[in-house]
Each structure stands twice: as structure tokens, then as C-alpha cells.
């Protein structure tokens, strides 16, 4: 019996984990179904576009510019060890576009948007606003989840594109301002080095990460417990899940794009 107890606990944990994966998958499928079937809530979609996209620009821009600038300094210092300082424009460009741009934007969206969506929907659940929606003949999945996830799928790739450009500009500013690079040559090297697949992979990652971020916010919000503690747990859980899933998805997508 003593030996079986830890095995039982392991089994219960494994089953619970698999069950939660199933619940999230079913939630994602239901969300997809509601995104493509009427009625559509244009106002909710527009508000979500504004909140997820436009209002995230400052944090995305600041994150990208400092990351690009630091990346340029690191590559310059590292490259100097084997006389390869000249690769700064190329490595900053590929580093930002293929990896750091989408991942950092995804994580910032997880911090800013996922938490906000989860807290808002969880509070709505605690204060019976979700029940009120149902009694007013409005499907909460269609009214709350579908517009937010659709908006994130569309707008986060745009944020990633903006983040990539600002990040490259951060590297450019440091390289031309303090590392002695020629401005025109820096831009030419950056543009020449990037391939269409780099940009496509960046935008696809943005789309996937945006979907994950919004979906986790909605899922945890809709399934929150009671009271302030329930809202807090939902918010924390949503950000943790979104961040981990974004990093895992990044690994998978990077593998897929490398194999192309």
C-alpha cells in the first residue's frame, strides 16, 4: 500500500493534466466554431482590436527597442572575440525577426492582455454578469471569447511586425551611434540578409502566440473560482499557461520553419 500511494498520486496528476488538455482543446474548438458562425459582435471585436493591438504598442515598442539595442551590443562584443564585429546588422535582423520579436511580443501580450482578459471575464463570472448574458439570450462564448481571440489572431502579427522593425531600429541606433557603423551600409546589410521566410515565420508565430494568449485569458476567466481569490487564481494561471504554451509553440514552430 505504501508503494502504491505515490503511484496513485502520479496517476491522478497525469489524468488531471490530460483532462485539462482535453478541456482546453474543446474550448478552443468551441471558440473556432463561434468565430465563424453568426451572430457576430462587431463592437466587441473593435474594442478587442483596440485593447489588444493599439494599446499594446507602447509596451511592445519599448521592449523591442531595448532588446534590439542590447542585442547589437552583445553581438558586437561577442563578435570581437573572433574578429566578426561586422555581422551585427545581420544577426540583429535575424535574431529579432525570427526569434526575439515574436517571442517577446508574445510574452508581453501574455502579461498585458491575457491577464486583463482573464481578470475581466473572471470578475464578470463572480458578479453573475456571465449568467446575466445567458438570460439575455446571448452566448458568452460568442460575445466574450470569439471577438477577443479573433482580434488577437489578427492584430498580434501586426504587433510582431512593428516590434521587429523597432527592434532592428534599436540595433541600428546603437550600432551607428556608438559602435561606428555606417548607416546606409547597416540598412543595406539588414535588408539584403533577411529572406521572405524569416518574415513569414515571424508573422505566423505572432498569429499563433496571439491566439494562445487570448484563448488562455478567456479559458481561465470562464472557469474561474468564486470570489477575489478565484479571480486572482484565474489571472495567475492564465499568464503562466500562456507564457509556457507560447515558449513551447515557439520551439515547435521554429523546428517546422527550419525544416522548410
Amino acid at each position: 500500500m505504501i508503494l502504491l500511494s505515490p503511484l496513485g498520486a502520479l496517476g491522478r496528476t497525469s489524468l488531471g493534466f490530460l483532462a485539462s488538455i482535453g478541456r482546453v482543446a474543446l474550448f478552443a474548438l468551441a471558440t473556432l466554431r463561434h468565430m465563424v458562425s453568426p451572430p457576430f459582435y462587431g463592437r466587441e471585436f473593435a474594442v478587442a482590436l483596440l485593447n489588444i493591438g493599439w494599446l499594446s504598442l507602447p509596451v511592445v515598442g519599448l521592449t523591442a527597442i531595448f532588446t534590439g539595442a542590447a542585442l547589437a551590443l552583445q553581438i558586437y562584443a561577442g563578435g570581437a572575440r573572433f574578429n566578426a564585429e561586422a555581422v551585427v546588422p545581420q544577426i540583429v535582423a535575424i535574431g529579432m525577426v525570427r526569434e526575439l520579436g515574436p517571442v517577446l511580443v508574445g510574452l508581453m501580450i501574455a502579461a498585458r492582455v491575457t491577464s486583463s482578459i482573464a481578470a475581466e471575464i473572471a470578475t464578470m463570472k463572480v458578479t453573475e454578469q456571465i449568467d446575466a448574458l445567458v438570460t439575455l439570450s446571448t452566448n458568452p462564448m460568442k460575445y466574450l471569447t470569439a471577438p477577443r481571440v479573433l482580434a488577437a489572431l489578427l492584430v498580434v502579427p501586426c504587433l510582431v511586425g512593428v516590434g521587429d522593425i523597432i527592434g532592428i531600429f534599436g540595433g541600428y541606433a546603437v550600432a551607428t551611434g556608438s559602435l561606428g557603423f555606417n548607416a546606409a551600409a547597416y540598412i543595406k546589410n539588414t535588408v539584403d540578409f533577411l529572406e521572405p521566410l524569416d518574415i513569414i515565420s515571424s508573422l505566423v508565430k505572432g498569429c499563433v502566440f496571439g491566439g494562445i494568449a487570448a484563448l488562455m485569458g478567456c479559458y481561465y476567466g470562464m472557469n474561474s473560482g468564486r470570489g477575489a481569490q478565484g479571480v486572482g487564481r484565474a489571472t495567475k494561471g492564465s499568464v503562466e499557461a500562456a507564457a509556457v504554451l507560447i515558449l513551447a509553440a515557439n520551439f515547435l514552430l521554429t523546428g517546422i520553419f527550419f525544416s522548410l
Binding site: P39, Y41, V47, M124, T127, E128, Q129, D131, A132, T135, L136, S137, T138
Partner: peptide
């Protein structure tokens, strides 16, 4: 059906008239 909830359950993001007319602004 119509329902009055214990805490009101008004939608924070909508104005009072939009709350009252919620059902009249969408659906059947």
C-alpha cells in the same frame, strides 16, 4: 424571461441605457 440578479449584474463596460436595452440591441 427577465431576471433581476442579486448584485444587479450590470455590464461594467456599457452605459446604463445600453445595459437596459441590451436585449433590444441584438438578437431576435
Amino acid at each position: 424571461f427577465g431576471m433581476l440578479f442579486q448584485g444587479g449584474a450590470l455590464f461594467d463596460s456599457l452605459t446604463v441605457w445600453q445595459n437596459v436595452a441590451f436585449r433590444l440591441l441584438r438578437g431576435s
